[in-house]
C-alpha cells in the first residue's frame, strides 16, 4: 500500500488516542470545526472537554463513543465504561459533580435484549455511584452488515464556578505528578480476555468513576493540571501534559504503581504497562508545597488508596517525558501502530 492510498482512508490508529489521532484531529477536524472560547476551553485545545463560560459559572461538556470487545469483560462492561469515561472527562476539566448524562445506543440487529439490559443496569449503577443520572437518549438498530456489536455514546454536562476549570496545559516546572492508582489494568485485562490468555490471575479492568478523587485532591491543595489516562495509557497522558504545558516531565519508573498481576501479564505480552489503557485513573499536576497533603487526601478516599507521586515537571526536555528507571534514563514514548504479540 502506498502512502497516497493510506491518506485516503482512516485506519484504527486514527482513533487509538495517540499520535496518529492527534494529527488527524489537528489536520482534518480542527480545519473544519471549533473555535477558541474566551475565558473557557474550546475544541482547538483538544482537551478532555469544553468549558463554556455563562455569567459567573461555566458549563462543562464532553462526549465519548464507546466500543469494547468483549462488551462484558472482567471488572466491568460497556455501560460502566461509558458512564465512567464521561464522568472522568468532566472531572479532568474540573467538573467533579456532573449534572446529567445522555445515552446514545447504536445496536446491531440480533443483539440479545438481556445484553442491553445488563449494559443499561450497569450504566444506572455506575451513574448512581458518582451522583448523576441519565436524562435523555437515543436508540438506533442497524442491520448486521452495517454494524458489528454495540456503540454507546455518552455526553456529560457539568458546572463549575467561572474560571475554576482544570486543563492539561497548567503544569509549571516544579509541579509534582500524582496518579490516583495502578496503571494499565484495563488494557491488560481486556487483551487477556479478548485473546483468551489464561494467566491464572485475577486480572480485572480498573474501570471506575474517579470524580470524587479529583474533588478530594482539590480540597486538599492546589491542583494545576489534570487528564485521565485512557487509550495510550499513562504514556499518552504524560506526553499530552508535557506538550500542552510546554514543560518536560521526569517520571520515576519505580514510583509508578502497577499491580503485580498486570506487571506479570504485561511482561509476558511484551507490553509496558505505562503504555496500556486505563479507565479509572487520573493524572494530576500538584503544586509542590501541597503534594504530600494532596497525596494523603487522595489515599484517604475510597478508590485512591494506591495513589502515588510519580514525578516532576522540569524546565528542560520540553514537551517530552523522561523515565528515570533508577538505573538510567530514557524517554517515554507512546506506542504507535498495533500492539502485536512479540516473537520471543
Amino acid at each position: 500500500m502506498s502512502a497516497d492510498d493510506e491518506a485516503e482512508t482512516l485506519t484504527a490508529a486514527h482513533g487509538a488516542g495517540r499520535a496518529e489521532m492527534r494529527s488527524f484531529l489537528s489536520e482534518t477536524v480542527l480545519e473544519r470545526l471549533g473555535d477558541p472560547i474566551a475565558d473557557g476551553v474550546g475544541l482547538p485545545a483538544l482537551d478532555d472537554g469544553a468549558v463554556l463560560p455563562d455569567g459567573d459559572r461555566s458549563l462543562v461538556v464532553t462526549t465519548d463513543s464507546h466500543v469494547v470487545d468483549p462488551p462484558v469483560f472482567p471488572g466491568g462492561d460497556l455501560g460502566r465504561l461509558g458512564v465512567a469515561g464521561t464522568v472522568n472527562d468532566l472531572a479532568a476539566m474540573g467538573a467533579v459533580e456532573p449534572l446529567t448524562l445522555t445515552c446514545g445506543l447504536v445496536v446491531e440487529a440480533g443483539t440479545p435484549t438481556d445484553r442491553i439490559e445488563t449494559i443499561l443496569d450497569s450504566m444506572a449503577e455506575t451513574a448512581e455511584e458518582c451522583g448523576v443520572s441519565v436524562q435523555t437518549g437515543d436508540t438506533k438498530v442497524l442491520p448486521p452488515d452495517d454494524l458489528d456489536g454495540i456503540v454507546l455514546n455518552t455526553t456529560g454536562i457539568g458546572r463549575i464556578p467561572r474560571g475554576e476549570q482544570l486543563t492539561s496545559d497548567g503544569l509549571s516546572p516544579g509541579d509534582r505528578l500524582l496518579v490516583t492508582g495502578p496503571v494499565g489494568q484495563h488494557g491488560i485485562a481486556l487483551l487477556a480476555a479478548r485473546e483468551g490468555f489464561d494467566f491464572e490471575t485475577d486480572l480485572r479492568s480498573d474501570v471506575a468513576p474517579v470524580n470524587h478523587l479529583v474533588a478530594a485532591a482539590r480540597e486538599a491543595g492546589t491542583v494545576t493540571a489534570a487528564t485521565d489516562p485512557t487509550r495510550g495509557g499513562l504514556a499518552t497522558a504524560l506526553t499530552e501534559l508535557a506538550a500542552r504545558s510546554g514543560v518536560g516531565l521526569v517520571a520515576e519508573d519505580r514510583a509508578v504503581p502497577v499491580s503485580g498481576a498486570t506487571d506479570s501479564a504485561a511482561a509476558v505480552l511484551g507490553l509496558d504497562p505505562k503504555t496500556v489503557a486505563c479507565e479509572g485513573r487520573m493524572v494530576l499536576g500538584v503544586a509542590p508545597e501541597d503534594a504530600e497533603s494532596v497525596l494523603d487526601a487522595v489515599r484517604a478516599t475510597p478508590g485512591g488508596e494506591q495513589a502515588a507521586l510519580i514525578g516532576d515537571a522540569v524546565d528542560d526536555h520540553t514537551g517530552r517525558v523522561v523515565v528515570d528507571t533508577g538505573i538510567g534514563q530514557r524517554y517515554l514514548t507512546e506506542p504507535s501502530g498495533q500492539q502485536l504479540p512479540r516473537i520471543c
Partner: peptide
C-alpha cells in the same frame, strides 16, 4: 516497575 506501590529493594535484587 513495582508491584502496587513504591519499590522495595528485595524485589529489585
Amino acid at each position: 516497575m513495582t508491584a502496587g506501590g513504591p519499590a522495595d529493594s528485595g524485589a529489585d535484587e
